[in-house]
Amino acid sequence: MPRFSVVIPMYNKADYIQRSVHSVLQQTLVDFELLIVNDCSTDKSLSRAEKIEDSRITILQHEVNKGLSASRNTGISNAKGDIITFLDADDEWKPNFLAAIDTLARKFPDCDIYGTDYEEKINNHTVIPVKNLPKAVRPNQYVKIEDFFTASLFNPIYCYSCVAFSRKALNKIGNFNTAVDIGEDLDFNIRANSQFKLAYYYKACAIYYVDIPNQMTNSTIRNKKLIDFKKFDRQAESHPGLKKYLNASRYYYASQYKNQRNKALFKKFKQDIDFSALSFKQKVLLECPFWMYQGLKKLKAFLIKRGIKVTPF
């Protein structure tokens, strides 16, 4: 049985899939299987993946397009490894990623979630997003994160191209929620980190490729099924970190609907936000007139294209 099962969900990633797969095959730790889940790609993704010859690769096919969550679930259900990890088909790992996860699992046997830091690649510029980690945590350290939700208030401390789970944890957490189109990672993060401890390597071991501008577009958020934050509100009453995490997430979705000029949904998310927990910049963005908001967004996009990432925190 392999130590690791690597799951790559694939849908129309012909330009990137070979880069992602090769980054797995170049890992210094070689005890893994690689499961590529083809979610009915209509481009050349499948043919390009099939050209890569390695006995550790298995390609799984969906008969109909099911989406990202279902693709991850298919990978999990077919995985044989002790630890299951994911890589998006347009991202890549650095050669030490699996070795770092293995070190975390051995160093912190009471943890069942293992993550590393990541780089964002924006128009050939490399940015490492700011994390809200405790001051005592230093770069290159292997640490246990006591409160994932507080640590992820500014930016997620891991993305789904640099996190792994023990089989025991996945059996208890359950599948990714296929009823959610936008926010499936957030939903899974809450369920996972509410039940299990996280071990973390504070060094970027994955590269997350970001589109410009770095936000959900109208075409991706409109008419999508969003996570129901309210189902976590009762739990958050006894967990201050989770309460802040939910509030920050509500702010994020409200800002996206403001960007679309969707007044009804903007109001729906805004009314549940605790403004006392927002930064000054966040308050300004929510309350300012649309012409000012649009101007600030254009300025942000301009800066990102030049490798300067600004945040509302």
Rank of each mutant, 00 (worst) to 15 (best):
242 L>E: 03
154 F>G: 14
143 V>A: 09
33 E>C: 08
230 K>P: 01
109 P>T: 13
313 F>P: 05
298 K>M: 07
22 H>G: 02
272 D>K: 02
119 E>K: 06
188 F>S: 00
287 E>N: 14
194 S>D: 04
46 L>I: 11
220 T>P: 00
296 L>N: 05
246 L>K: 09
90 D>V: 05
92 E>V: 04
1 M>Q: 11
268 K>A: 11
193 N>R: 02
295 G>R: 08
4 F>Q: 01
175 N>E: 14
195 Q>L: 12
45 S>R: 12
225 K>A: 13
53 E>T: 01
235 Q>V: 11
79 A>G: 07
198 L>H: 03
309 K>D: 11
182 I>N: 15
137 V>T: 14
288 C>I: 06
1 M>W: 06
16 Y>R: 14
261 R>G: 04
214 N>K: 07
35 L>R: 06
248 A>H: 08
50 E>N: 12
294 Q>M: 02
239 H>W: 00
207 I>C: 10
293 Y>S: 06
212 I>M: 08
70 A>G: 12
290 F>R: 00
180 V>L: 05
175 N>L: 12
271 Q>P: 00
79 A>I: 02
286 L>K: 03
190 I>A: 07
244 K>N: 09
290 F>D: 10
189 N>G: 09
130 V>E: 15
48 R>A: 01
120 E>I: 05
286 L>D: 11
130 V>D: 14
282 Q>C: 06
48 R>Y: 03
100 A>T: 12
61 Q>S: 12
221 I>C: 02
68 L>A: 03
157 I>P: 08
104 L>R: 05
259 N>C: 06
266 F>K: 09
189 N>V: 00
141 Q>N: 06
205 C>M: 12
221 I>N: 02
138 R>Q: 14
269 F>W: 13
176 F>N: 11
24 V>M: 05
169 A>Y: 03
